[in-house]
Amino acid sequence: MKPCCGRVIGYICLLAASAAMITGCSDGPASGEKTDTAATPPPGEAAPVTASGLGALLAASKGKVTVLNFWAIWCPPCVAELPELAKFYREHSGDTVAFLAVSLDGVEGIETVITPFLKAKTVPFPVHVLADRDIEAVSKAVNAEISGALPATLVYNRQGELVKSWEGGITLEELNQIVKPLL
């Protein structure tokens, strides 16, 4: 190889490496797009959210480390991890972590199914119930290639960049291992 070729390849690699390091895994929530506003319900209660409303919630949480958890009552491992998520929520309620729990149970069941369930399980965090369960719209809103498998937990850094996409049940310890270095 001629020395100049090695240098050219070196520059190309350097450019690619820099781009990979700068862009990271994924961009954060899309900015500049028109999104719905979404109200956060009181702790332990549920309220509807659209896919674009979810995007707005994520955009509003920039500056904090954000944990976004997709779950449903019909999903046994989701229900199994709720106590762990409750501990995490209580542990981080005073610091710079935003916790967004998103239910796939359907808005029609907010009064009859979800609210009674949250009370029975003494769930301490607010729950956003997806009104629009179009998975492509939700993927776009949260800027992540979610597969649709529940439960799923996404963690974003303070800059709003996705740093972890976790599928399957998660424990307090596992979640803290991801979140604490970002605080």
Binding site: G10, C13, A20, C25, S26, S147, E167, G168
Partner: peptide
Amino acid sequence: KYVWLVFLFCATVVPLYGCASE
């Protein structure tokens, strides 16, 4: 030169694979 290329390869490829989900 080769050490430099190996470093660049690792710096490029490892972050990309590190993004994969579980």
